[in-house]
Amino acid sequence: MTQGATTTKATFPSVEWFKAISAIVNDDPGYNHIGTCDATVGVRIPDLEKNYLLTFEAFEVSDVREVTPAGAEDTDFWLEMPYAKWKEMLENIKQNGKADLHHTLNTIDLEDPEGFARSHDGYRRDAFYRFNQTFQYFFDSSAKIDTAFV
């Protein structure tokens, strides 16, 4: 991915931040080229008590909303890590234009004994792998905006 002109500013974590990324990928032929993705994905940042629900549908991210912890877990899987690690990942993406080899979703997942991607259902959790490139592309696209951190 090449880094284009930065036009959007948003604070992580917030609904606006996720919507800004959604707007970018929904208009990106590169994202479309990866293929359809149908999954509900929770985002949890426990130490900030922030929880979000992202809905990936066909070729777009169709919905973003803030939810309760239970709402974030009532998904195919949720991505959970402390705020500092979220920040490290996003800063790395910004710095490199995309995640470097040590900050991909899978790598982060493997390094956490509890997993970065978690689920109450062993089948639904596999959506993390089935659509992995879509999710990676989604977070890599945050390089295209100016992220402020709380």
Binding site: T104, N106, T107, L110, E111, Y129, Q133
Partner: peptide, 22 residues
């Protein structure tokens, strides 16, 4: 993917993950 030494290998393994996940 975790031990990939370059972008090519990292992407290869991620794409293969998707296939085997189906």
């Amino acid at each position: 993917e975790y031990t990939a030494h370059n972008e090519a290998e990292s992407l290869i393994y991620r794409l293969c993950m998707q296939d085997v996940a189906r």
